[in-house]
Design a protein around this nucleic acid. Structure first.
Lengths: 130, 130
DNA sequence: TATAATTATGCAACATTGTTGCGTTTACAA
DNA sequence: TTGTAAACGCAACAATGTTGCATAATTATA
């Protein structure tokens, strides 16, 4: 069985994600990591953190993959987390909003894994500027 | 005011999207277009078709942008279309499933543009193979 | 139907995001 | 303290998307 190591870089990346209010892309995380490790290593750390279910992987409306902390989220909720993501088209920030109860109406011959509910638009910060 | 032109390449791209059951990426559309035009032109045609609201732009769970026909979709529905997209993690196909009524619970200081409801998992075709 | 105006295209080059292979380093258990 | 597997760095690659500019094609209208 694979042993999970808690390296310096991994701890740093995890902390960056946890301390941020909005979800972040690999590029943003790497920029904040202050050259603690290689670009590629950040990708691999993120992959591991998702597998260990410590962070969520969410795609914004532009197709950029973002990572958000997985705060109060049980094992079961993790894959079926129905909370809403707001993807700002101005600042490109992805924010986790709230838990939304969704009524899914999917044919039974589809095997559902995860549910993604993303709303695009303009976030409060960008609305003020405008 | 810009005049909209209906070029051969544009007609071809639109037809490809309309005839396909699942949503397609630029790569797939270009492959089907049989060198009717340049790779870049496909990107630009897709951009225009989205702006003209003839097709929908949807992101699959891997971050690849897909395009789907906008069949029975009024002007108002277009930006608020609440129908569900199934993103197969095996064959990567993106399918439009059905209209799902979603109860959105978003703070009023957010300006909503579009709603994306995407479910990942395994589609019927891939389940049979397994 | 000929022509002017401007939309659309092709090509080349670039930018961003994400992946892979491989030799080296490091964390952790014993 | 040390062996071993996990993690890392580097370099190279792959996929997807974008931009600038000269040229071609479409459409209105004269």
């Amino acid at each position: 069985m694979a042993i999970i190591r808690n390296t310096i870089a991994k701890k740093a990346v995890f902390e960056i994600i946890q301390l941020n209010k909005t979800a972040m892309s690999q590029t943003e995380i790497f920029a904040k990591a202050n050259n603690i490790c290689d670009r590629v290593t950040v990708y691999r750390i993120l992959e591991r953190l998702v597998k260990e279910m410590k962070i969520h992987k969410i795609v914004n409306v532009n197709g950029v993959i973002n990572y958000a902390p997985c705060n109060s989220c049980s094992h079961e909720q993790h894959v079926h987390h129905d909370h809403l993501h707001f993807s700002c088209t101005t600042c490109k920030k992805l924010t986790c909003i709230s838990d939304n109860r969704i009524e899914l109406n999917i044919p039974s011959n589809y095997q559902v894994a995860e549910v993604f509910l993303t709303v695009s638009g303009i976030c409060p910060d960008c609305l003020i500027i405008t």
